[in-house]
Amino acid sequence: MARTLRVFDTDPNARPKTFASDYVGRFRAGQQLNGRPVALEAWRITTGDPEVGKAVADLYGGTPQPWETSKEDSLEVLTGADSVKVIVDGPDAVTFRMALYGMTGKPIHACDGVEFTDPEDPRHGQPCGCPTTVQERKAAAKAGHGPKPDQRVEFRLHDAPELGKFRLMTGSWDFMKSLESLWRELEAVGGPALCTLSLELVEFTTKSGVDVAYRKPVLTVHGPASTEAAPAVPSLSQVTADSAPF
């Protein structure tokens, strides 16, 4: 039976908050407004810990405020920073798979692009049947019957590593293209690496003459992480993105 301190029964607000997640917060590139996804110019950070919310707001701007979610990270901070220095503990902190999620929120298809990878899936190790070209994979994912990149980066803030680990989850195809070189760079560092996590603006004109602008997450490796944190210098963006992976 779980033990509790009854001293907090009469003052429940003083009871330390506990969270099941191994992460103190998430970095997000967008939000839902009126049921529609909206891309942001700067990082949105969500957390379930008011102290973490206050700390990231002090570092990067914004105000912790509640948002509608069934998850633990019930506070959001709309920061003014589109670029943040982070510490990544090696290549294992950056993971990749292709995934298609079902109505329950769990993946019904998880693969590496060639074979099924979920150990609990009876198809584990068998060919996944995904299209062979990236263009075809994108089309299948857009149509809702194929997996898309399911990539996760775990890191600590260079300016406040004591807060704990944060996580970025992204379905960006652009980020997927950078993964192999990113893993090599992190491996070459041989330990915790100082990196910049940024939302990079991409602009181009399609063959039909349509102007497109969106932001993609980019992780840039600088070298070994210093044991001393530097003052935070947020990078502010002035351009509105009309499309970006969350």
Rank of each mutant, 00 (worst) to 15 (best):
V94Y: 01
L201E: 01
M176I: 02
A188I: 02
S226Q: 10
K85F: 06
A110K: 09
P64A: 00
V84M: 06
D9F: 11
S208I: 11
K177H: 08
G190L: 09
G90C: 00
K216C: 01
D159C: 08
D211I: 09
G62A: 05
P147G: 12
P147A: 15
L163I: 11
V239T: 10
P91E: 04
A188V: 01
P16A: 04
L168E: 07
A99P: 07
E203W: 10
R6V: 12
P12N: 14
R215Y: 15
T227E: 12
Q32W: 15
L201C: 05
G61S: 05
T4S: 05
H124F: 13
L179P: 01
V7Q: 13
S178H: 15
R6N: 10
L201P: 01
Y101W: 12
F166Q: 03
E154I: 15
M103Q: 11
D82H: 13
I108S: 04
R215T: 10
Q135W: 03
S235G: 07
K177T: 15
A230R: 11
P16H: 00
W173P: 01
K71V: 10
R28H: 11
E68P: 00
A241Q: 03
H145E: 05
H222G: 11
G25Y: 06
T69E: 03
A213N: 15
E185Y: 02
V38C: 10
G223E: 11
Q31G: 08
C130I: 14
G35W: 15
Q126Y: 03
G53A: 04
P149S: 12
